[in-house]
Simulated assay, not measured.
Amino acid sequence: MQDTVAVALITSLSTLAAATLTGLVGALSTRRQLAHQLTVARQESVERWATRRDELRRDAYVGFLGACDQAYRQLDRRWLEPGGGEPVPGFDEAYAAMRAVDEAYNLVLLEGPAEVAAVGRAVLTSLTAEHADQRRLGDEPGDRGVPLRDRHRERWLAAIEVRTNHRISFVDAVRPVLGHDG
């Protein structure tokens, strides 16, 4: 009878040990799977955040370029109109377009990076300088029936070149940020 009890005890202990070992192996496997799933979830979250950041940046950059285009159109109108496109008292469309560029630049500042914001600032500064130059040139004595472009052709051509160079610099700064090589 003692042999039977010993066999039963050994069988019970070996079954209990096997169950414990199986549970331990299962727990370790589950732990590894959960750790992997957590790592994958974190990577996906980082990728979603990066994608969203890139979308926000692209929208900010496109908005800035669009506002610049509108300001350039207003500045062009002032260059081409007789009398220098003098503003109507209380409202100046070119100034309103300049404000829109300033507001779009605020988004570029927020979205960054600093290199793009610096080049955007140069674009904004050149627009402001051209606007001020037009106002100053429009106030000079001369034939008001002749457009500023014709009265100050060299300045007009220089302004167009500055615009083009600053725009290209901005796009060149933005492309690597958005992952475009060229």
Rank of each mutant, 00 (worst) to 15 (best):
A104R: 00
L9Y: 06
T4S: 15
L65W: 00
A159P: 12
V123A: 04
R32N: 14
Y105T: 01
W79V: 00
R73W: 01
T11D: 12
L109K: 02
L13S: 10
S169M: 04
D102W: 03
V174W: 01
A100G: 01
D54H: 15
H180D: 12
P87W: 14
H131G: 01
E103W: 04
L16T: 07
S29H: 15
H36G: 14
P82V: 10
W79F: 06
L107D: 06
T11Q: 00
T11E: 07
L137E: 11
L80S: 12
L9C: 03
T22A: 11
V177Q: 05
Q2V: 11
Y95F: 15
E130R: 06
G23C: 10
T128C: 12
D172A: 11
F170G: 00
L178S: 09
L148W: 05
L109E: 00
T128Y: 05
L38F: 08
L110Y: 13
E55G: 03
R48C: 09
L75Y: 01
T164E: 08
R155S: 06
D76C: 08
T164Q: 11
P89M: 05
G83T: 06
T11A: 13
D139S: 11
T15G: 06
T125E: 09
V40R: 14
L28P: 03
H180T: 09
Y61E: 01
Q33F: 02
E47K: 01
D59C: 05
T20F: 09
L9R: 08
G84L: 05
L127H: 10
E86S: 15
A27N: 08
S29N: 10
T20W: 13
N165A: 11
L157A: 10
Q70L: 09
H152F: 13
S169C: 02
A17H: 07
I10F: 08
V116H: 03
G145R: 12
V162E: 13
L124H: 03
G63A: 10
V177K: 12
D92M: 08
V171L: 03
L127Q: 03
Q33E: 14
G120T: 04
G182D: 12
D69Q: 02
T15H: 12
P147Q: 07
A94V: 04
S29C: 14
D150S: 06
D92K: 02
R151E: 11
L24N: 14
E140M: 06
G112E: 10
R151P: 13
M1G: 15
A94L: 05
Y95M: 02
A173W: 13
V119R: 02
W49L: 14
I168W: 11
I168Y: 14
G90H: 05
A129R: 15
V46F: 09
A129E: 06
W156C: 09
I160E: 15
G138V: 05
R136C: 15
E130V: 04
E86C: 07
H166I: 01
A100K: 01
Y61C: 00
A18Y: 15
R144C: 13
L13F: 05
L110N: 14
G120L: 00
A104W: 05
R58W: 07
C68A: 14
Q74P: 10
S29F: 08
G138I: 10
A129C: 14
D139P: 01
G26Q: 08
D102C: 02
D102Y: 10
Q43V: 07
V146S: 14
L16F: 06
C68I: 02
G85F: 00
D3H: 06
G112D: 11
A117Q: 05
